[in-house]
Design a protein around this nucleic acid. Structure first.
Lengths: 284, 284
DNA sequence: CACAATTACGAGGGTCGTAAAAATG
DNA sequence: CATTTTTACGACCCTCGTAATTGTG
């Protein structure tokens, strides 16, 4: 029987057209590749190439072999992928969330409950999270809405309230509360990894420019050292403290207050009893 | 990436339960197989076995890997099969027939028309022949009936007339003709490789016992040296001559006269022009 | 003459088998 | 004590790279 590496080499030859180029890409000498393809032919008992003195091309057999080689290699790659991810799933608990705040408490909670497991967390759109929960790619997800699906167990996990963070000199800093429309059009500092809040900002303040920061440290430093408005929330303040020299003003739009819901598949609910119990005890 | 041989070894281990037995089946030493499986684990970055001191079993990863290994190996075997059979099809012309007589002339005709090709011929039931012609497993088939199918080109190739071959002393030997029912119940010598004639005999003479001979030489010797009735045909006599000391009597049932039809796919008709022309010129 | 493929030949890596060790029932 | 697995070690096979050959544009 032929071997996987021969099929990989065959496809590399197809990709690059000549043995020399393919050999270079494979970090292999031309002669080695030439012999390897001859060996493949011998093992198949079929001629795959049409050989001229300084040119080698696939014949019809070869073209067919390439088709099947792709399938075999895909199957092999799939095997690696599936086995690895199954193994990983045995050692890791994956949580997905639509926003960062719930993960700040859920991740450490899972770590203490399952000290031998790796806890992996992600932020994605609600639609993807839901799909991937169903596909068992997550054990838990956290959304800002309930889901009416008999296959999914759903329990409220707490609320988050959005605030505008302003320098004291800002015209809005004296207000008891503001609306998104009041600040639409201004330049705003925004931390990047904030899940669905991002979409909300774009939607409610379509005229603003967002100065997006990918690093927490940079974000906080710029907030401290500029007069640009930014956002924060009760949960963020609880975690990181309030930035000095800043006034926080509640945002009054209903969308600025969200409820989080902790979900798992009903089929796994029994196994997750301890988690669900702790989630309810430590509600945000 | 792992290699095919490792998957084969893995499946052999699953089949035989211990590394020792599997190694024996693989004509390999136990240590070699043990190392090979360790290497597979390293290459997958996943533990596949649960090891005790003198026992090794698949874990859940391993069970999953086995599932996928089977798929990969099936795919690989399929590749070999398909490529080889495609290659063979490039070098061989396959003719299928419902009876031997047409092949006596068609096979040599194709050989002279395509001296570089291998001519392969088969006898099968009409249904199978038709199906496999459509699946391009045959380039040509010969049936004893026309087919009303726009995808199939069909041309008459000649007729064959069945005769009863009798020792001169036989009560029926003076007759101008006989019917199947006249000999039903008698023991009859029958040559085995006669295609649809076999079915016809069983159907028309349900009470007879057929003494079937697989070899043409044995068949003819027994015909010569016994008083048992047997069958022959105009085409068989033309090919082999008549057996000495035998009287031939025509069989009068309409089923004892058949017309042969030579067929190919309409889609290949142009390419087969020469063959079709020769077939018509040398009609039986 | 640059480029491509094949053949020849020697080097080296990897797999193999044997032997030995450890553990089990 | 037979059976099973793993490790150690040396042998050998097989693939590799280099060099040389042949042929092409």
């Amino acid at each position: 029987m032929f071997e996987i590496y021969q099929l990989e080499q065959l496809l590399e030859f197809v990709k690059y057209g000549t043995l020399s180029k393919a050999a270079k890409e494979l970090h292999l000498s031309q002669p080695a590749l030439s012999r390897s393809m001859q060996k493949l032919e011998n093992e198949l008992h079929v001629i795959l190439f049409e050989r001229q003195k300084n040119k080698i091309t696939l014949n019809q057999n070869g073209a067919l072999a390439v088709e099947y080689a792709e399938r075999v290699l895909n199957q092999a790659a799939d095997m690696v992928e599936r086995v690895r991810s199954f193994d990983r799933s045995q050692h890791t608990i994956s949580v997905g969330s639509c926003a960062p705040a719930p993960l700040w408490s859920v991740t450490p909670l899972l770590s203490t409950l399952y000290p031998e497991m790796t806890i992996s967390s992600d932020m994605k759109s609600s639609e993807l999270l839901l799909q991937e929960l169903k596909d068992s790619m997550y054990q838990f997800i956290i959304l800002q809405e309930t889901i009416d699906d008999s296959a999914i167990h759903c329990t409220k996990y707490g609320e988050e309230h959005l605030f505008l963070s302003l320098p004291p000199a800002h015209p809005l800093s004296g207000h008891k509360g503001v609306y998104f429309k009041d600040i639409d059009g201004q330049n705003l500092l925004l931390f990047s990894k904030i899940g669905f809040w991002n979409d909300l900002c774009l939607k409610k303040m379509p005229s603003s420019h967002f100065l997006v920061q990918d690093e927490r440290f940079s974000f906080e430093e710029i907030v401290k050292n500029s007069v640009l408005p930014s956002f924060t929330s009760d949960l963020a303040i609880k975690r990181y403290g309030n930035v000095t020299n800043r006034v926080i003003v509640p945002i009054l739009d209903p969308e600025a207050t969200v409820s989080y819901y902790f979900m798992c598949l009903v089929s796994t609910k029994n196994k997750m009893e301890i988690v669900l119990h702790e989630i309810e005890r430590h509600m945000l």
